Simulated assay, not measured.
Amino acid sequence: MQSDVYQKIKDHPDFHSLVARRKSFALNLSAIVLVMYFAFILLVAFAPGVLAQPVAEGSVTTWGIPIGVFIIISSFLLTGIYVKRANTEFDEENQRIIDECLKG
């Protein structure tokens, strides 16, 4: 009985659409984070002087600090965006598909 329901869910056309949209969304957000991190590391490796420049004349804070903080905060925000969408749109769609398969 249980494997029957799982098969119905797997065969449901909306389930395939949901999986594709969720995967695409997750990959896009992951790509954004990876590009930010790799760009920062490449900047550290090949142009460290850029990050060593002071933010303002006479300042002890260099550009590396605000850029690093921006990357960390952006990562948290992108994670929050994914969680919000996963807990609303994706979960609601998933539950609708499950309900349809259990009825039929």
Score class of each variant (00 low, 15 high):
residue 100 E to S: 01
residue 83 V to H: 04
residue 78 L to T: 04
residue 91 D to T: 09
residue 40 F to Y: 14
residue 92 E to K: 03
residue 72 I to P: 02
residue 1 M to N: 11
residue 74 S to E: 02
residue 34 L to P: 08
residue 51 L to I: 03
residue 96 R to L: 02
residue 17 S to M: 14
residue 24 S to P: 12
residue 46 F to D: 05
residue 58 G to L: 00
residue 15 F to Q: 08
residue 82 Y to G: 01
residue 26 A to E: 09
residue 54 P to M: 11
residue 65 I to T: 08
residue 104 G to M: 08
residue 10 K to I: 13
residue 46 F to Y: 09
residue 75 S to L: 09
residue 35 V to A: 13
residue 83 V to I: 07
residue 34 L to C: 13
residue 43 L to D: 04
residue 94 N to H: 05
residue 65 I to C: 01
residue 65 I to L: 09
residue 88 T to Y: 02
residue 30 S to L: 13
residue 20 A to M: 13
residue 64 G to M: 01
residue 83 V to A: 05
residue 102 L to Y: 11
residue 9 I to E: 00
residue 49 G to Y: 03
residue 49 G to S: 03
residue 28 N to T: 15
residue 7 Q to C: 11
residue 76 F to S: 03
residue 19 V to T: 15
residue 64 G to S: 02
residue 18 L to I: 09
residue 41 I to M: 13
residue 97 I to C: 00
residue 63 W to K: 02
residue 2 Q to C: 11
residue 37 Y to V: 15
residue 9 I to M: 05
residue 14 D to T: 12
residue 72 I to H: 00
residue 25 F to M: 11
residue 38 F to G: 08
residue 101 C to L: 00
residue 86 A to Q: 05
residue 4 D to I: 14
residue 5 V to H: 12
residue 3 S to L: 11
residue 30 S to V: 12
residue 68 G to A: 06
residue 49 G to P: 03
residue 44 V to E: 06
residue 32 I to P: 10
residue 50 V to I: 13
residue 57 E to V: 10
residue 6 Y to I: 12
residue 60 V to Y: 12
residue 66 P to C: 00
residue 76 F to K: 03
residue 92 E to P: 03
residue 5 V to C: 10
residue 49 G to K: 04
residue 6 Y to M: 15
residue 102 L to D: 05
residue 52 A to W: 06
residue 12 H to Q: 11
residue 73 I to D: 02
residue 2 Q to A: 14
residue 2 Q to P: 10
residue 28 N to R: 15
residue 28 N to M: 15
residue 55 V to F: 03
residue 23 K to Y: 11
residue 45 A to M: 13
residue 32 I to H: 14
residue 11 D to H: 10
residue 48 P to A: 07
residue 60 V to R: 10
residue 11 D to T: 04
residue 71 I to V: 09
residue 82 Y to I: 06
residue 25 F to R: 10
residue 29 L to R: 04
residue 10 K to P: 09
residue 48 P to D: 06
residue 87 N to I: 01
residue 12 H to S: 10
residue 64 G to C: 01
residue 83 V to W: 01
residue 96 R to A: 06
residue 42 L to P: 11
residue 94 N to P: 00
residue 47 A to V: 12
residue 103 K to I: 08
residue 86 A to H: 09
residue 74 S to A: 06
residue 91 D to M: 04
residue 16 H to L: 14
residue 60 V to T: 15
residue 87 N to L: 03
residue 21 R to Y: 13
residue 62 T to A: 05
residue 74 S to I: 00
residue 43 L to G: 10
residue 70 F to W: 03
residue 36 M to H: 08
residue 80 G to N: 06
residue 27 L to A: 11
residue 63 W to C: 01
residue 91 D to V: 07
residue 74 S to K: 01
residue 50 V to G: 05
residue 99 D to S: 00
residue 44 V to W: 04
residue 27 L to N: 14
residue 19 V to D: 13
residue 22 R to I: 14
residue 93 E to F: 03
residue 86 A to S: 06
residue 88 T to S: 11
residue 83 V to Y: 01
residue 103 K to L: 08
residue 11 D to R: 06
residue 12 H to Y: 07
residue 27 L to R: 15
residue 44 V to M: 10
residue 57 E to G: 01
residue 41 I to T: 14
residue 26 A to Q: 10
residue 83 V to R: 03
residue 27 L to V: 15
residue 48 P to G: 05
residue 17 S to G: 15
residue 28 N to L: 15
residue 1 M to H: 10
residue 52 A to G: 13
residue 60 V to M: 12
residue 57 E to D: 10
residue 93 E to W: 07
